[in-house]
Design a binder for these strands. Structure first.
Lengths: 297, 297
DNA sequence: CTACTGTCTTTTATCGTGAAAAGACAGATT
DNA sequence: AATCTGTCTTTTCACGATAAAAGACAGTAG
């Protein structure tokens, strides 16, 4: 295996969805933008669709012959990018124990364990290093610093600085800006979710990220905006693997969000500060409680 | 060329310096810590030293036969790490014009231009991306955001937040901590430099970095400490290539530093805030003035 | 018994290679 | 005239291979 054609496979599955929903297929350039891939890939997809008898394709004529069934889709595992595979394996090890602070990380061993080439692992570790959880000894191994209490405290310290500043900037955004309508949309999604919390509490994670990213965007500072990647990554895996008391936690957070949103809309700086601080404090507590045993100092 | 043995060459040159200064050579493990390389490399060095008639080496006996001359040293160019070579080429392009915001960056082209493999360039760009000057389009090229006025403003905004917080923490450090003696050492180095500024103004850059890193370390937050890498990188190249009015600039900065240091020692929070802000404001002005023409919006 | 040396194994750094994917351009179609 | 298709070129992604460098371990010297 030299390179997985997962871009092609993922785009193919997406194109099948288009067939199910939309009916007919547009021109190749339009498909490119719809699927966010190049024409090379689009033509590959159309070629296969013809081969399996889904469509008849001749230049600009794309005639749908039949609706796709579940057998037409590529299975989930084949559409993952290599980066995602490596990240998942690594985070599983990191957050679900089996990894202690101070431990050495071996590129070769990690690559063999996951079943990928060393350079992919190397590149992953370099990208990952900005999260502050690992550190490189030049010409030698990486050192795992671990998802410790200190890490969580340092992370949340920065988060509080950045979000407080962003929230103030957000509240001061002139009326009529697109961010206000986006905030309204998020608010109603919050209410809808809260109304059906018992069944849908798992959807909170995504909503959480969208709200905080929107607020951070008001800072108009790339370092603040990029820093949210660290938080998002930590929370993403945290939500995924730490299910204890999830429903209660999410309900509380949703309620805090609604109060926070109301404060933003009021434009009252002191109220924004207060509700922002309050929410971030409880988010910090949640995070602190999720630190694995093996990292407790 | 598969891999340059520049670790070996650099350590060899360092070992020659030890010979010049110290006289005799210690044991292999001691040499390892002195040169910060492995025993494999140390033994390689000793082997060569014997071959060229510098020492007679038999087990733990290392007899110095002659003093090394300048011909014994490896030339400067051969001791550079690949990463440094790539970084220099890239930064030269970036800061000395010939690069406009929005431009595409081509890994292959860059690699050919510098004369290195593509993976080294790839890894460099990934590491470099955390500085916020470039951005990746997956499966496609990098985009240069450029060293623009916006970049400088966003950078200094964070810098001011972080350094203000660090300076406050620094001032609150209990007496007797090692940081205070380090601050004293830096203060006297500042005075010495200021006394001979006309001849030595070029040495300011290094002193500047040491002082600010010391202050940032008081934050005890890895994100704050790591962020200084971004500032250090920008200022490093800025100092190197922007020589207009350098002596005056450095004298002013030195004087501001001394006032800042005095404030830190006083422990007076308001005075720390004030002198820190004042210094960072003038550092920001200096930076803004150094933005290349091609990036002026 | 501790620290050093000789030797061997493992890991990292870097490159070249080939398939996947992107992209360029001329000619064709509406 | 604008957009689309056919074809070809270029670039990115991922791998395996190899020299440099690190590191492990047993035996040896003090």
């Amino acid at each position: 295996m030299v390179k997985q054609n997962n871009v092609y496979k993922q785009a193919y599955n997406k194109a099948l969805k288009l067939l199910e929903d939309g009916g007919n297929l547009p021109s190749e350039p339009e498909l490119c933008t719809a699927l966010t891939v190049s024409r090379t890939t689009v033509r590959g997809i159309l070629g296969r669709m013809q081969d399996v008898g889904l469509i008849e394709w001749d230049k600009r004529r794309k005639l749908v012959l039949r609706q796709p069934g579940s057998a037409d889709y590529f299975p989930d595992g084949e559409t993952d990018t290599l980066t995602d595979i490596i990240e998942r394996s690594f985070m599983r090890k990191l957050l679900l124990g089996g990894a202690e602070a101070g431990m050495q990380i071996n590129e070769l061993e990690l690559a063999r364990e996951i079943g990928v080439g060393t350079s992919s692992v190397r590149e992953f570790l370099i990208r990952f290093s900005r999260f502050g959880l690992i550190e490189k000894r030049p010409n030698s191994h990486w050192v795992l610093k671990g998802f410790t209490r200190d890490f969580a405290l340092e992370l949340t310290e920065i988060r509080e600085m950045f979000e407080l500043r962003s929230a103030r900037a957000f509240a001061a955004t002139p009326a009529g800006s697109a961010v206000w309508s986006e905030l309204d949309r998020l608010e109603s999604e919050h209410r809808a979710l809260l109304g059906d919390i018992a069944a849908r509490y798992r959807e909170f994670s995504e909503l959480d990220e969208r709200l905080h990213r929107l607020i951070h965007s008001a800072s108009r500072n790339r370092f603040i905006i990029d820093f949210y990647d660290v938080i998002a990554m930590i929370f993403h895996y945290h939500y995924q693997w730490n299910k204890a008391g999830e429903e209660v936690r999410n309900r509380t957070a949703l309620e805090e969000h609604l109060i926070y949103i109301a404060a933003l809309k009021s434009g009252d700086a002191a109220r924004v500060d207060d509700t922002c601080r309050r929410h971030l404090r409880s988010a910090r507590e949640t995070l602190l409680q999720s630190i694995p045993e093996s990292y407790r100092d």
